[in-house]
Simulated scan of single mutants.
Amino acid sequence: MFERARRVRKGRRYARLLERGASRISRGLERRLASRSPLREVAFARSRRELDERMAAERTIGDVLDTTGTFYEPNGAYRGYGPYRSLRALQHRAEIAELAHEVRARDPETVLEIGSANGGTLYVWARVLNGVETLISTDLDYRGRRALLDHFAARSETSLRCIEGDSHEAATTRAVREALAGRPIDFLYLDGDHSYAGVSADFETYGPLVADDGLVGFHDVETSGTGVPRLWSELERAYECRTIGGTDRDGPGTTGILYKGGRS
């Protein structure tokens, strides 16, 4: 039994290494494609049509997650082209769905996401949080996908701003403040730098901009090998918090919600 468990764990590690290697190769191809304007324009036009068809069919949060795909459902209904081929959200479906329900119930007007990766969770906020006036994303590298991300809010009155750069740098913080135009953040989602120093810096920088009754979401609050659990344990002693756990913990870590002004 122990030998079988060891083989299973080894197999999972090997699969993850293969996935990471494939991701690095695909990102290199994406950058080369993005540098060739005619090909990029064709890929974007076809991807946008595909996304428009999915948007027209969506009625529920489940429909939106069907579009993006999730950690255990990598092949979402949306199938883009070239650098726009995937919107996969790297969360457990049950976790991101419950988080989206809770945030929507708060009727937020301003949302900031740190770390957008494939754009999956950003798409969820754009499609599910109907009352959002300002939606801001920051990411180190959008990999030539900005045009598609900007299209997420095409069917709403939401102003979507994508800010490329390190969330810890002063220039990025200034750009976020400019986009907020003096308004507080109603929902802050932290899924960028997962080191203890990095996620702590993000919380210390953008946490004070959150409204007194606002929410802060964290991804991977129980993921070993990252610094997020350490920060989360500290925050649980200072704020009212809760976790949202999926049924299978072999994938990405639990989602955490911090209630800045307490739960109401």
Rank of each mutant, 00 (worst) to 15 (best):
Y196E: 15
G251A: 12
E178R: 14
L215C: 08
T223I: 00
D186E: 00
G245D: 14
T243D: 02
E240Q: 08
G225R: 06
D191Q: 06
G192L: 09
V216L: 10
S233M: 11
S200F: 00
W232M: 11
D202E: 15
D191R: 03
L188Q: 12
L215W: 02
Y189E: 10
R242D: 09
E222T: 15
A201S: 15
G246C: 03
D193H: 06
R237Y: 01
P229A: 06
G225P: 08
L231H: 02
Y189Q: 11
E178I: 12
G207N: 11
D186T: 09
E240T: 09
G227W: 00
E240C: 01
E236A: 13
G251M: 06
G192C: 10
D213P: 02
V210D: 07
I244R: 01
E240S: 04
P208T: 12
R183F: 00
S224M: 11
I244P: 07
L180W: 08
V216N: 08
E234L: 08
Y206E: 14
G251L: 07
G214V: 07
H194S: 07
E222I: 03
R183H: 04
C241Q: 03
A197S: 11
T254D: 13
D220H: 05
W232Q: 07
L231G: 01
I244Q: 01
E178F: 02
G207S: 13
V216F: 09
S224H: 14
A201W: 05
A181G: 15
E178V: 14
Y206V: 11
Y206W: 13
Y189C: 06
P184I: 11
R183G: 03
R183P: 09
S195A: 01
H219D: 15
C241M: 12
L235F: 11
T254G: 02
R230L: 13
V221P: 02
T243W: 01
P184H: 09
G225W: 10
F218M: 08
G214M: 08
L188D: 06
T247W: 05
V221A: 06
G251V: 01
T226R: 09
R230T: 15
V221F: 05
D186L: 02
A238E: 15
I244V: 09
G245I: 01
F187S: 01
D186A: 00
G225V: 07
P252L: 12
L215S: 06
